[in-house]
């Protein structure tokens, strides 16, 4: 083992604990497996699909689950005449 690595290592267990707490908090809250962020994602996409013909290639979804705050980013390209097609 390298000396530098031996002496300057930070503990990894606290990171493991924190990651598990966040992950399990999200997983336990969802009886059917879909956490709040997933439900919001699905419902937001459904609402938009009601008004716009969605091209799934033009939809990008990013999620980041945190301890206090999660983020959900739905990025959809809506063509000018999309409303007409759906109507």
């Amino acid at each position: 083992m390298n000396l530098r690595r031996l002496f300057f290592r930070t503990q990894s267990a606290p990171a493991a604990r924190e990651r598990l707490q966040v992950l399990l908090a999200h997983e336990r809250l969802s009886a059917d497996g879909a956490d709040l962020v997933t439900k919001l994602r699905d419902e937001i996409l459904q609402v938009i699909a009601k008004h716009v013909q969605l091209d799934s290639d033009k939809v990008s979804v990013r999620m980041e689950r945190g301890a206090q705050v999660s983020t959900l980013a739905v990025d959809i390209e809506i063509p000018f005449d999309a409303g007409k097609k759906a109507a």
């Binding site: 990651r19 966040v22 992950l23 994602r41 979804v61 999620m63 980041e64 689950r65």
Partner: peptide, 12 residues
């Protein structure tokens, strides 16, 4: 996902 550190970012 957990081993690769991407567990918070799973979308689909």
């Amino acid at each position: 996902d957990l081993i690769m550190g991407a567990e918070r970012r799973v979308v689909y």
